[in-house]
Design a protein around this nucleic acid. Structure first.
Lengths: 109, 109
DNA sequence: TAACTATATTACTGAGTAGCAATTTACATT
DNA sequence: AATGTAAATTGCTACTCAGTAATATAGTTA
């Protein structure tokens, strides 16, 4: 349970973080990082998105604390900041599953 | 743990649901509903948003399965579909707290 | 039926942003 | 220093969407 009171300001910050996850491209990037840390170019190849695009998504994910950066020579390696991110995704997936089950039942019933 | 594989299609659906929570106005509406079911106009008064605006937000939250509707005469009462929504918000708040603590420490150190 | 009320819908405007091409920055190698 | 490479940044276009005013719909009451 969080100690933060849900003032409008806090809600704006929370919304901002949800927004970071509200983009298929960024979810895909995070999903790739599940395998371990990767350089930007690896992610570009893995996802098929443009370099500039991936870089911008990574900046945002970093600002929001979802990934960490490690610079090594020419390369910048990104990795998941923690495993907790997928708790959020799993929870959402769970909701989605129940939602789809409900919808199927309604159509069948 | 979810059984869904994270195909691009599933990720798009998940992203769509995160997007529903990525809006301060909608978080505020959900927060209001914590107290119990409310008619649209109550939410309009409570939040200060316009009627059309609140109505549209509620449609989206309903489509995404976050709230349920109950019609009674002229009134339409909305309520949280389940308590699990705030698990998502609490998780996000927790991340935010840690993030802020880290930032403070960095500035202080 | 006519007037009234709550909610939904429509049409519009302005703000934000994803994606891309081109450029810049940072570092490495020769 | 000159060249090359990885990543970040910038300028742009197209699209999405929050918010609002006006209207439509659905239900109630006189």
């Amino acid at each position: 349970m969080s100690k933060l009171t849900l003032t409008p300001e806090v809600m704006a910050l929370v919304a901002e973080r949800f927004k970071a996850l509200a983009e298929p491209a960024r979810l895909q990037i995070l999903s790739c990082l599940r395998a371990g840390e990767m350089a930007v170019n690896d992610l570009v190849n893995e996802t098929g998105f443009g370099q500039a695009n991936v870089s911008k998504h990574l900046q945002l994910l970093h600002t929001m604390g979802f990934v960490r950066r490690r610079k090594d020579g020419l390369f910048v390696y990104y990795a998941l900041a923690d495993k907790g991110i997928f708790q959020l995704c799993d929870t959402m997936c769970g909701r989605l599953e129940r939602e789809m089950k409900r919808r199927r039942k309604r159509l069948a019933g």
